[in-house]
Design a protein around this nucleic acid. Sequence first.
DNA 1: CCCAAGACCTGGCGGC
DNA 2: TGCCGCCAGGTCTTGG
Length: 271
Amino acid sequence: MPELPEVETTRRGVSPLVTGQRVSRVVVREARLRWPVPTALSRELPGQRVEAVERRAKYLLLSSGAGTVLIHLGMSGSLRVVAAATPPALHDHVDIVLDDGQALRLRDPRRFGAVLWVRGDPWLHPLLAGLGPEPLGEEFDGHHLHRLSRGRRAPVKAFVMDGRVVVGIGNIYAAEGLFRAGIHPRRAAGRVSASRYDALAAALRRVLSEAIDQGGTTLRDFVAEDGRPGYFQQRLHVYGRGGKPCITCGRTLSEFRIAQRSTVYCAACQR
DNA sequence: CCCAAGACCTGGCGGC
DNA sequence: TGCCGCCAGGTCTTGG
């Protein structure tokens, strides 16, 4: 579920309901996420006011005077704001209960997600410190990709999914960006030209922005009912379409695996 | 340093 | 209907 657009959609949905609220308690029903949910979170967050809800890569940061809650949704996580009295469903692992009677509730069936508590400067945390630029930020462009890729022999798809290069490009948007830029996903990263990296950076920006916009279309009821943002309805050009015709040339889309991830592309349009 | 593969989990689906 | 193998939006960790 969560690629960058969904995490950003979640942030926008949750932020106005949580920011400025005081935390009354933290309920951890299942601490065994990717890393154990620290007991210090339950001790030190209650009584604090949530100052802001920020995003870096696919991490959400809830800041308070005493520390920062670092949340990652993994493969299957979702966050909602519910009435604190709402009975938890299966896999509703953590509640951050607020003074106004609502709770920020994490559901994560596969438990690849994380809820951490960082006392000092969160930007120095090991999970955040080494990250590359935001794909929608100013530092990210074709020149950045071109410069970092020289001498790299890994497939360009794996290269753009590497968070040290640029954050937030998951399996869906890597495939979509490469298709729109006409680049074969298995081409060695070091053998993609500067101008084609310009096209790739622009394509990634565009597809991510579009997805966020579409998530935004259902933002109003996002927190209320079924937390599914609208961007799933957007037309994906290649992801999940292996064996179907290319929307540009009609040729059957090919599918193979790069680093255990399914990868769909058009052998005619992508070189 | 670079790269590929393994690891962590549950649930849904297709095939038999 | 039931069971089995495979696949799924991520990314840290390990080993060559």
